[in-house]
Design a binder for these strands. Structure first.
Lengths: 164, 164
DNA sequence: TACTTAACCCAGCAAAATAGTCAACTTTAA
DNA sequence: TTAAAGTTGACTATTTTGCTGGGTTAAGTA
């Protein structure tokens, strides 16, 4: 499992898609504009995402992309795996020839860690992220509202102190 | 937070160090040989690790590197952060100017996810990985031993069936 | 003191990954 | 049937990665 900007772009674009494709397909041009990712780069990414059955491409006017499944069925690990080349990362090619040697000691450790991260990301769905964001937005708005109230309160206090 | 081969090399090297530097300093030459990483690349990585106060360099004969702290105080996130260039990853530079626009919607989402991963890796220490590995090794050896027993058992069965 | 061993420092270089461009080619709504 | 909108692939520039080889400096050892 690797986490690079490429994977981030893919997840970001998929989030955008999940957020906007409820009614009609979303064009890559729109996503490119909203997320400031180059159209051509998006095309590359979605080519892979489509082949991995993460999205559906609809051609012709009014076309675009939609999620191939509901947002709660699409997890982050799969998105990243779809666009990232699976590097084997094993110097020994998974062969047992360096089993007893020191070389594979920490190598195994890293692979285990990598698996943990993969499992972790596999449990996070697009729907969860969207929901979380919604919560955050609401919370943020509430905070701002609260601050405004405080501000107003302070203001009236100031006024009343002046009028005394 | 990025997870690239560079970070993996760093974690692998640090694990090797944690595993071998109990008594005396470990030379980069040794790590290079054990983990099949080029010496010069290790020098680059350890230059950063040293500046980030993760390791201590001891010069001269008998010198090498040791962990700057105990293995249970060093976490994976810090190792990766030490060798990876911190990319800002924000197209808007963290400014509030695109707060209300669509552009920052999914951007915030990704940043949240990134924070989650960072927090996750921050909770994993070198000591934990070493312990886990130890358990794995023991478990694997036990499994192999068990298989051998089964194999012998099968073998004796075969022999006894032939002798009948 | 000379010698060795290692960390440290630096300039550069080849391969790979990233990000983007361009030009064809398909589909389909109007 | 035509033009808009999408797909596809080949091609290019830039950045990162991983590595090579040249040193210098500090600390032990003969």
């Amino acid at each position: 499992m690797r986490l690079t900007t490429k994977g981030r772009y893919a997840v970001t674009a998929m989030l955008d898609l999940a957020f906007h494709s409820d009614t009609k397909p979303v064009t890559l041009t729109d996503i490119a504009a909203r997320q400031t990712i180059s159209l051509s780069y998006l095309e590359q990414l979605f080519s892979r995402l489509r082949r991995a059955n993460m999205v559906k491409g609809i051609r012709g006017p009014g076309g675009g992309y939609t999620l191939a499944d509901t947002a709660d069925k699409i997890n982050i690990a799969d998105i990243i795996a779809a666009v990232d080349e699976p590097i084997d990362a094993t110097k020994c090619g998974g062969e047992a020839n360096c089993q007893k040697e020191q070389a594979c000691l920490t190598h195994d450790l890293w692979m285990g860690l990598s698996d943990q991260i993969r499992a972790y990301l596999k449990d996070i769905t697009l729907a969860q992220l969207l929901e979380k964001h919604h919560v955050q937005t609401v919370a943020k708005r509430q905070d701002q509202d609260a601050e405004q109230v405080i501000e107003i309160h302070r203001h009236t206090e100031l006024l009343s102190s002046l009028s005394e």
